[in-house]
């Protein structure tokens, strides 16, 4: 019982993905998932927490994100260096295909991780920006479901913005 702080056991939690994979995460990671915060604080997180809407592939990414953010924020580096580091990490983290990005966005919303949700929304918005309608439809596999009359109405509605 010498150095008590060193020996203090780190609290870990088990998160189970939709497809049944169990991930072990430290408390600093788990608390970033606001959706399970109450379970954690109320000590109701045993034996594991099931996250029904997130696949293991996406959960692994979410955990990677939260882990990096937790480590950077507690690393004792100055705020500006930490900010820079997070920015670089976030940029690289968003370098995934559109499909993963969409799933990350829904997962961040479901798990209630504000910073990741904002990051994915910003990235998706930047993908939509400055692209033509046809490019956007193709990129996100969206079908044009407008009737001829509706299409005309939409054009008319925003005709001024296309000038």
């Amino acid at each position: 019982m010498s150095s008590s702080t060193e020996l203090t056991e780190k609290k870990v939690f088990l998160l189970k993905s939709l497809d049944g994979v169990i991930f072990e995460v430290e408390e600093s990671v788990a608390v970033q998932l606001e959706v399970i915060r109450e379970l954690i604080e109320g000590d109701c997180a045993r034996p594991f927490i099931s996250l029904y809407n997130v696949t293991s592939e996406i959960l692994a990414l979410v955990i990677e994100y939260c882990k990096h953010h937790a480590e950077t924020c507690s690393g004792g580096t100055s705020a500006t260096i930490a900010d820079e580091d997070l920015k670089t990490f976030d940029n690289e983290f968003m370098n995934v295909d559109e499909n993963i990005l969409l799933e990350l966005c829904s997962a961040a919303d479901y798990l209630d991780i504000k910073s990741l949700f904002e990051l994915t929304c910003r990235t998706l918005a930047s993908l939509i920006k400055d692209r033509t309608i046809i490019e956007v439809r193709k990129m996100f596999n969206v079908e044009n479901d407008f009737s001829v009359v509706e299409e005309k109405a939409v054009r008319k509605e925003f005709a001024w913005a296309f000038k």
């Binding site: 966005c105 939509i128 044009n144 939409v154 913005a161």
Partner: peptide, 18 residues
């Protein structure tokens, strides 16, 4: 996501998708 689009041109494009 659309809340983050400010220029009306981007909103007009998005509106015309589906």
């Amino acid at each position: 996501i659309f809340d983050l689009l400010t220029p009306f041109k981007d909103l007009a494009q998005a509106s015309s998708v589906c």
